[in-house]
């Protein structure tokens, strides 16, 4: 069953037995990077394969860094599919504003810790929104969709990651955005330590410069890998 159609992939909810093994139970999520008709095959195939493998690695490494992500059952490099555990639960986007204050704060702190753990491991998520955070009925917080993620330990990438989260909060949860961002940042600092301060500063800078940096400045940023 198709549950989501993103720009580059489709998410399907399937039964474990059908996709992986007849003795298995429950549901799996299949993320299928579909072929793009506008791209020549010689470009399309390696792109989809590279991204599928990268995402699997990121999900796995994130888990090792102490961030709850859905376990990957299978990386199918023939059909460019990732088969993952289906996380029961609802997106934070749906439930955040209905929560009690204490529970909200618990979640903010957890997000801050998750982010620091990812960044310390050299991972940036690239698309931190409350739609990509799932809350299971047992209260566990899962981070999903590493489709725009990468291994990038630069200050710039980390700052942008944090900034994107802030933007997402402001646009969808403007009522609680400020308290959320404050709490997330303080948890981030506690987990990350001194280096985290630099990242927060960079995130502020990214916010100030908006969507666009003068060409020279950007070029310099790219060259220095900052």
């Amino acid at each position: 069953m198709l549950i989501k159609r993103g720009a580059e992939a489709e998410l399907h909810l399937e039964s474990f037995a059908e996709v992986l093994h007849p003795l298995g139970e429950g549901k799996v999520v299949v993320k299928h990077r579909v072929p793009k008709g506008y791209r020549v095959k010689e470009l399309d195939l390696p792109l989809r394969e590279g991204r599928t493998c990268l995402e699997a690695r990121l999900l796995f490494d994130a888990k090792r860094a102490g961030v709850l992500t859905p376990p990957v059952y299978e990386v199918d490099r023939e059909n460019m599919r990732l088969v993952m555990e289906h996380v029961e639960g609802r997106t934070l986007k749906e439930v955040l504003e209905g929560m009690g204050e204490g529970e909200r704060r618990r979640i903010y702190r957890k997000i801050g810790r998750y982010l620091a753990r990812l960044h310390r491991r050299g991972i940036v998520h690239g698309d931190l929104t409350t739609s990509n955070l799932l809350l299971s009925p047992r209260g566990e917080l899962y981070l999903v969709d590493f489709g725009l993620g990468e291994y990038n330990p630069s200050l710039e990438a980390r700052g942008v990651d944090l900034h994107l989260l802030r933007r997402a909060l402001q646009s969808v949860h403007f009522r609680v955005a400020e308290e959320a961002y404050r709490e997330i940042c303080s948890a981030y600092l506690r987990e990350f330590g001194r280096e985290g301060r630099e990242v927060l500063r960079r995130a502020e800078e990214v916010a100030r410069r908006g969507r666009y940096v003068g060409r020279e400045e950007r070029g310099a940023l790219l060259r220095n890998g900052k």
Partner: peptide
């Protein structure tokens, strides 16, 4: 292809 991909993301 890169241009079309980013456009598709925006769409």
């Amino acid at each position: 292809a890169a241009l079309v991909e980013v456009t598709e993301r925006a769409v």
